[in-house]
Amino acid sequence: MKGKAVPHLIGVFPLGMMSLFFLAPLAFMVMVSFYERDPLGFFNEAFVWDNYAKFFSSFYYTISLRSLWSASLGAVLVVLLAFPAMYIIVDMARRWQLFWVILLLSLMCLSEVIIGFAWLILFSENSGIPKFMGWIGVWENPRSLSPSFGAMMVGYVTLGFSLVALMFLPQLARRDRSIEEAALTLGTPPMQVFSKVILPNFKAGIVSALVTMFVYFLGVFVMPTMLGRPQDWNMTVIITDKAVGDANMPLGAALSVIMLIFTLFIIGALTYASRNKDKGALT
């Protein structure tokens, strides 16, 4: 049919832009990860495994474990807070929902740098929580609460909360309420309705939120550098440090490729699991 040619032609524009500026850079990164570092410029063409070999040392082993730990803990904390919160918020009056949506959207858009800075001040001994606690007499010798692992986690949670909450918002607002209403009229306590009816129904949504947050937290840079101690720094900080600080792009690229493969593996496993479950539901 003649009418199909034009849409195909128009499609070349988004396809070209995405291939050239999204896929090509990723392919390039894979290529550069085999290059050699050039102390005078960026890199020299080569084919060496050195950059990958560096990953298998105790230093990167520790960093990897640490990144996995902080990202998973952050993901769990965010979902634990955001799911019940959104469950309550979707039943609030419309104006309060709008208040929350604007608050969450603002936080989602707001720079990591600014959220980190705000917590930095709130944790500092001359203007934030420590000062307040000293003032009311709970803490005699107030000290700054950051940098610390706890402060970094608070930063993670503030950063991820808006995203997860906005993911849950449509699912929770449009859910079919007939089953919970039935359970309630049959005299089930609300807490049990929440744990026995709602949670199992949202298992898929919760798992995908957990995975999204986990992947997102693997890639945060500002929170660990601003609120964490050097021993809390994750792989992202190290990659940035190597690539920009030491001007060692091949090493940065190799570490990113490893992270990319890991991420794709996780996303693939999740898609596979959810597809299998759909099949199971059909038969």
């Binding site: 988004p14 999204f22 850079p25 390039f28 550069v32």
Partner: peptide, 23 residues
Amino acid sequence: LGLGPFMLPPIIIAMGASVFWAE
């Protein structure tokens, strides 16, 4: 293809862009 960028950690995208533009 347009959904891709939001599925990857930003550092990977940033690193890719950095290498690409350098080249």
